[in-house]
């Protein structure tokens, strides 16, 4: 192993995104998958075999063997694992949502700051070339003043612990609010001031919300809506879901469909249409940027603070859905 390669560990394969990170790490010339730890040893061992790396039965030994670590556990475990990385002095990239409570998110940020350890949040959608072009268009004034944004991050129900309120900290709103929340903050460079939300369980027999709707206000009165529902039929829909934004401004309109780059496949064997994506690998771009920052000892490209702000919108949305009232942000 060349010494200039960064060794990247993965803590837990509980999250559905973990395999994509492992695949991407194999594709990045400057990185090597340095090992896997999992609180479910069989799952971790299986992943280590599949991705040709070492399974560590002891998380601290993994942390001692890598240059940086990705936390891809159940949402509820993020705090514990990030704090362990901070204690070990290992820069840590945390899967979204950063945390399921503000207290957890604050504790994670503080622990990493105190230890002088970089904390990043995994928002790969920022790395879409289409998203970056929209950001340029908005910030350059091509669309004039933005009047309204209609966004979606709809998906299929991921199953497993995503339906467990204890491990996931919520349902569709917790899972699918944060990507668009981050895009809104990043593209428009504004913070949230208010959210109103409805949440419901209508599609699946589960103990968490599987659908909802948010009306969002940002600084300056900019208004946006978000649909974070797990409303794509699991068996029939041609792909996992979407990230979309329709933006209207005084100078025109823009339509963003981040995962529109598909080959449509009508296969008799499957019996349903499939969309095979051919767009850029956003997970790889995210990891390359993260590793570049680690290498140069630069601040994380997408910080823990960014993760907290996005999670805060989801938490405020839950508060609104429970009270049936608009909730002001930031939460105190």
């Amino acid at each position: 192993m060349p010494s200039d390669r960064l060794r990247v560990g993965i803590i837990s394969f509980a999250h559905v995104h973990a395999p994509a990170y492992a695949v991407a790490l194999h594709q990045i010339p400057g990185a090597v998958l340095g090992g896997i730890w999992d609180d479910v040893p069989e799952r971790g061992q299986q992943a280590a075999t599949q991705y040709e790396t070492t399974f560590f039965a002891d998380r601290e030994l993994l942390l001692a063997s890598v240059d940086t670590v990705i936390v891809a556990s159940e949402n509820r475990g993020h705090r514990e694992h990030v704090l362990a990385a901070a204690a070990a002095g290992v820069p840590v990239l945390c899967e979204k949502p950063l945390a399921t409570t503000l207290a957890d998110a604050q504790a994670m940020i503080q622990a990493c700051e105190a230890a002088g350890v970089a904390l990043g949040t995994a928002f790969p959608v920022r790395y879409s070339a289409a998203v970056q072009s929209l950001r340029t268009a908005v910030q350059s004034g091509l669309l004039g003043e933005t009047l309204m944004i209609r966004a979606t991050n709809r998906g299929t129900y991921p199953g497993g612990w995503f339906g467990d309120p204890e491990l996931a900290g919520g349902g569709a709103l917790m899972d699918h609010t944060v990507h668009v929340a981050d895009l809104l903050r990043w593209i428009w460079q504004r913070e949230f001031t208010q959210v109103y939300a409805e949440a419901a369980t209508r599609h699946h027999e589960i103990a968490v919300d599987d659908c909802g709707l948010l009306l969002i206000t940002l600084d300056g009165g900019l208004i946006a809506s978000l649909d974070p529902s797990w409303s794509r039929p699991v068996n029939a829909f041609p792909t996992w879901g979407d990230v979309t934004m329709e933006v209207t401004g005084t100078g025109g309109a823009a339509n963003l469909d981040v995962f529109a780059q598909n080959v449509e496949f009508f296969g008799n064997a499957r019996g349903r249409t499939e969309w095979r994506g051919w767009g850029d690998n956003l997970d790889r771009l995210l990891l390359e940027d993260w590793l570049g920052a680690i290498r140069e000892n630069a601040p994380p490209p997408i910080s823990g603070w960014d993760g907290l702000r996005a999670a805060e919108l989801a938490l405020a949305a839950y508060r609104s859905a429970a009270t049936h009232l608009p909730v002001a942000l930031p939460l105190s």
């Binding site: 009047l147 309204m148 209609r150 109103y196 939300a197 409805e198 419901a200 209508r202 659908c211 909802g212 709707l213 948010l214 009306l215 206000t217 009165g221 208004i223 809506s225 209207t248 005084t250 608009p326």
Partner: peptide, 27 residues
């Protein structure tokens, strides 16, 4: 619940967005 540009006094622009919850529980 709704929000929009309706009372913002912009000439030649209007837009609004609403969330409804039905008695059935649908959104």
């Amino acid at each position: 619940h709704a929000q929009g540009l309706t009372f913002s006094g912009r000439a030649g622009k209007d837009a609004a967005m609403a969330i409804l919850r039905f008695r059935s529980g649908a959104l």
